[in-house]
Design a protein around this nucleic acid. Structure first.
Lengths: 140, 140
DNA sequence: ATACAACCTCCAGTCACTGGAGGATCAAGA
DNA sequence: TCTTGATCCTCCAGTGACTGGAGGTTGTAT
């Protein structure tokens, strides 16, 4: 039969802490794991993919409700594909905004990081640049 | 004498919530405010600048410990500012990774959205599209 | 004089985890 | 077989960075 993974294996394969996996199960992001006779959680490859997806999504700054809705996309039965497309489009708009914000942030930080020539903090342009940075309206 | 500001004025001038200002005082990011005879906090221009610095730093994604060390640097102008530049560079690297990931997600979702729109029983395998995405060389 | 906005302190809640106590179970070596 | 140490279990408390609210006081405009 297919090889099953203990929670620690799943944790190692996805770079997630064991407690976090149990937390995701608690809040319903991961389905309730099958248990061994002794009560230990037992996983398979699809759990690795789902959890990897969740972790990527979190690293990208999506909230758990947002990830829930992204996951719903692939959980959709085929007949609801139109709805899935709508969800995907809604996220696409959001992602465009996020990318734009991060690019604004990147250029601001680039200026901040490159302007320091070393030396005394009194002349440090990093601090000046942060003091003068306006990111108003970017929603960051 | 110089004009003093109430906490609400400081809040408006810096786009900060009143409770957040009190919180920053609690954790020592802002010095303990002077008080009026009736016990209300009273601020001056330097507090506006310090709080603006804190808020800008937060918008740039610096943690409170990081902001604390940036503030310490500008409070002690004789120290070396290489630390400030290092903090900024670390954030730049992180932002680069996030932008790359979001762009990957964008193209995957575009694929999902367009294939679903085709009307056929599309395969909305969002998890595989994103979970399997490896960003080589990002260290994650 | 009376509203009512703004202030005060203190505390609880949010989100997304993270860590630890206290106890059971498993796998490997002596 | 026994023992040791890693891993697992549940449950609960703590973190970071706020946010909001209760309950009470003060300032100001009419």
């Amino acid at each position: 039969m297919a090889k099953r993974l203990a929670i620690g294996d799943l944790a190692r394969q996805t770079g997630t802490k064991v407690n976090t996996i149990r937390f995701y199960e608690d809040i319903g992001l991961l389905p309730e794991a099958l248990r061994t006779a002794s009560g230990r959680r037992s996983y398979e490859a699809s759990d690795v993919r789902r959890l990897a997806f969740i972790r990527h999504g979190r690293q990208l700054g999506f909230s758990i409700p947002e990830i829930r809705s992204l996951l719903a996309l692939s959980d959709q039965p085929d007949r609801d594909c139109g709805e899935a497309a709508a969800i995907a489009r809604a996220h696409l708009a959001d992602i465009g905004i996020r990318i734009a914000r991060l690019e604004t942030l990147r250029s601001a930080l680039t200026e901040v990081a490159t302007s320091c020539e070393g030396g005394r903090a009194a002349e440090c342009r990093v601090i000046e640049a942060i003091a003068g940075t306006e990111l108003a309206g970017t929603g960051i």
